[in-house]
């Protein structure tokens, strides 16, 4: 696993205790904590790619992290083209890989 979320108990910034939530990504449950973005949940769980490009079929995930590059687009609860780095995850969100750019 490459990317990870800092365990709260070892974090010098002392964040409040986790309030676990689970989202479903391409049919698989992925655990995070309340307040994370969808990109944060995925990266925190060690997942770094979740989109396939239209032209090259190449994997993509977060690049800019602040909503500018549109690399991290996902379908959330049936709605396409949601920037995963901006959208806060909600319990039970169903996240689906988008093939290609819109």
């Amino acid at each position: 696993m490459t990317s990870y979320r800092v365990p709260a108990e070892r974090d010098p910034a002392r964040p409040a205790a986790d309030r676990p939530l689970t989202i479903v990504v391409d049919g698989e449950p992925v655990a995070g904590t309340a307040g994370q973005t969808i990109a944060g949940v995925l990266l925190g769980a060690g997942r770094r790619e979740w989109r396939t490009t239209a032209a090259g079929g190449a994997p993509r995930g977060v690049f800019c992290g602040i909503g500018v590059c549109f690399d991290c687009l996902v379908e959330v609860n049936g709605l396409r083209d949601v920037r995963a780095c901006l959208r806060r995850a909600q319990e039970g969100d169903v996240v689906t890989r988008q093939g290609g750019t819109p």
């Binding site: 490459t2 990870y4 979320r5 800092v6 973005t37 944060g40 990266l43 925190g44 977060v62």
Partner: peptide
């Protein structure tokens, strides 16, 4: 914003 490290 997330206390997530992008890598090790």
């Amino acid at each position: 914003g997330e206390r997530v490290a992008v890598g090790r």
